[in-house]
Amino acid sequence: MRVLFAVFPVADHAFPVVPLAWALQNAGHEVRIATHPDLVGAVTGAGLAAVPVGRGEDLAALTDLSRNPALSGHPGGGLDVGPGDCPDWGAKWFRTTRVFAAQRPLLEELTGVVVRRRPDLVLWDPFCLPAAVAARVGGAAHARLLWGRDNIAWLRGRSARYRDRAAPGGGWPEPLEETMQQLLEPYGLPYEEELVLGQWTVDPMPPGMRLPAPGVRYENVRWVPYSGGVSVPEWLHRRPLRPRVWATPGTTGMIGSLAESEIELVSAGDSEPQVPLAHLLPSCSAVVHHGGAELFASAAAAGVPQLIVPKPTWDEEASAAQLVRKGAGIAVSGGEFGPDSLRTLLQEPSFHERATAWRDELARLPGPAELVPVLERLTSHHQRI
């Protein structure tokens, strides 16, 4: 089977595909990763074959998230869907469709890759709609591969329900229509919902995170941490004398004097390029972060208690809520966070016990290798070649 991954042009979206790509490759399938030229080194460094797409300046706003309010922490630009009713869902769906539209320059290149290489299966980032269109042109089966909670399916469903119920006469200007017309018109293709939501969806997030999305078929897979191939420093082989705490940028200053005498503080800004998560997390007594999907899922898989100070951008508040439900950590607002929160997390045994139990629960989910035969069957069923 020939498999093509289409990755959004950001490293945080590229790394989560690596374990599944390895599993497919180890099972004898031909694997290629289509991604921006800036990420080719990260892909080949993982022992995988890269196909550069999106050359030039067309995707500059996406490769530099600091200039993209739709995906960064810009005050008006988060795409988070909180635990409530999300009253501003319409604005967030509009911004989501603008991210879709920004990848229009990928369409011709991805279609060319599909037509030339004839993959049997295309696994695409939820933002990368051109990959779904390219798969449809080439007759390949295709599915979304999530890297966080499926906000897109929920927002799409919410928009469709509003259109059908509140504006049956067509008064609701569906922002997806313009984007899809631009993608489909060059190939004379009709609109199909699978071009936005996939023929199925691979979901690596811990159970309990999923939003209701009728009509979407999900296949669970266990999250396997991967953050790049780097050497393990000598200090990591030594047992820490004090509880080791890994804290991401923006949280270390809030820990204060606790780091001086009670813990061994490891700053993610200093250590992340040198220490892969899979090696660092098992040695930690706690992780302090803003709730990003990669660290949340990786720490849960390692059985490490977490202290989350949510910074809403995508699914950070949902991660914090799931952590609290599992009893595997603490969630506090930025104004409430201080040394006492971390001290409680470290000193109360129940957090470690429940984090360990959660780790064991997650370990029973199918791993990437177990998902391979599922993908083979689904590909055979959906392929149109």
Rank of each mutant, 00 (worst) to 15 (best):
G250I: 01
P173H: 11
Q182A: 12
A91V: 08
R118F: 02
Y218R: 08
A167I: 00
D120Q: 14
L79I: 03
L345S: 07
A300H: 06
V230L: 04
N68H: 11
E353W: 13
T63R: 13
P240H: 00
S283N: 09
A131I: 04
G338R: 05
G148N: 12
S319D: 05
L79E: 01
L106D: 01
Q306S: 12
P310G: 06
S319K: 03
P273D: 13
E185D: 07
T251I: 04
A259K: 01
D88H: 07
A213H: 05
F337H: 06
S350H: 11
T111P: 11
A14D: 00
V245C: 03
L155H: 10
A70H: 13
D125F: 08
L48F: 09
L375N: 07
L362C: 14
I152Y: 05
D58A: 10
A46E: 03
G335M: 07
V309I: 15
S380F: 12
H13E: 09
V113K: 09
V7L: 08
E348S: 12
A34I: 04
G269I: 10
L307V: 13
V51S: 02
D12C: 05
G334Q: 12
L59A: 01
V275Y: 03
D203W: 06
A355M: 11
R165D: 11
V53K: 00
D58S: 12
E348T: 08
I263Y: 07
Q181L: 02
P105I: 01
G253F: 05
A61F: 04
G54Q: 06
L345F: 02
V31Q: 03
A34T: 08
G28T: 08
E353F: 14
L4N: 02
G73M: 02
P83D: 10
E174G: 01
G73E: 01
A50K: 05
A166P: 00
S271G: 08
D340P: 00
P233Q: 00
L145T: 06
A328M: 09
Y191R: 14
I263D: 01
G228I: 00
A268S: 14
A166M: 06
F100T: 03
A213Y: 05
G335P: 02
L62F: 10
W314Y: 14
D85A: 13
I255S: 05
L155R: 05
G77P: 08
D12G: 11
T179R: 04
R384S: 04
T111R: 15
Q182C: 06
H29S: 09
N151S: 04
C284M: 05
L65T: 10
P310K: 07
P349E: 10
R359D: 09
Y162P: 00
L211D: 07
L211H: 12
H381F: 07
G329C: 02
L121S: 05
L59M: 04
G250S: 07
G269N: 14
P207K: 15
E219P: 01
P339A: 15
S283K: 14
